[in-house]
Design a protein around this nucleic acid. Structure first.
Length: 113
DNA sequence: ATAATGACGTCGG
DNA sequence: TCCGACGCCATTA
């Protein structure tokens, strides 16, 4: 287009930032029954940190299986525990005996389908 | 430019 | 096992 928009497109729902796009791309690649920690996604991307990944999912996670990304200790995203646990049960994600957290040791996705 | 914030991570008590 | 403090990193006030 002839007229570029000014460099201030803070949030354009149609055009995500490269970083956000990359994060969502990885999340969509996570197979059912597997999970990744926020920090794992950041390392796979080789950029940013866990908090940045969390920010992206908080804002644009609605279009991807966000429940497959959770805390390093296996705790689902705050405020979405119930919904996430339901998905884990449905996908057969390895849960800990307590049934409240994911068994990261077994459920962590190695990066290959 | 400095301070506060957040879907985090790790360590210590 | 649960809770709090500190460190990280980019964004926002």
């Amino acid at each position: 287009m002839a007229s570029e928009q000014p460099p201030d497109t803070p949030d354009d729902p149609g055009t995500l930032d490269d970083y956000a796009d990359a994060v969502l791309g990885v999340v969509e690649r996570i197979p059912p029954g597997r999970v990744l920690a926020y920090g794992d996604v950041a390392e796979l991307l080789g950029a940013g940190g866990p908090r940045q990944v969390g920010r992206v999912l908080a804002r644009y996670g609605g279009a991807v299986p966000w429940w497959r990304v959770l805390r390093a200790d296996g705790s689902p995203p705050p405020g979405h525990e119930v919904r996430a646990l339901e998905e884990y049960r449905a996908e057969g994600t390895p849960l800990r005996p307590d049934g409240r957290r994911v068994d990261m040791r077994r459920a962590r996705w190695d990066g290959r389908s």
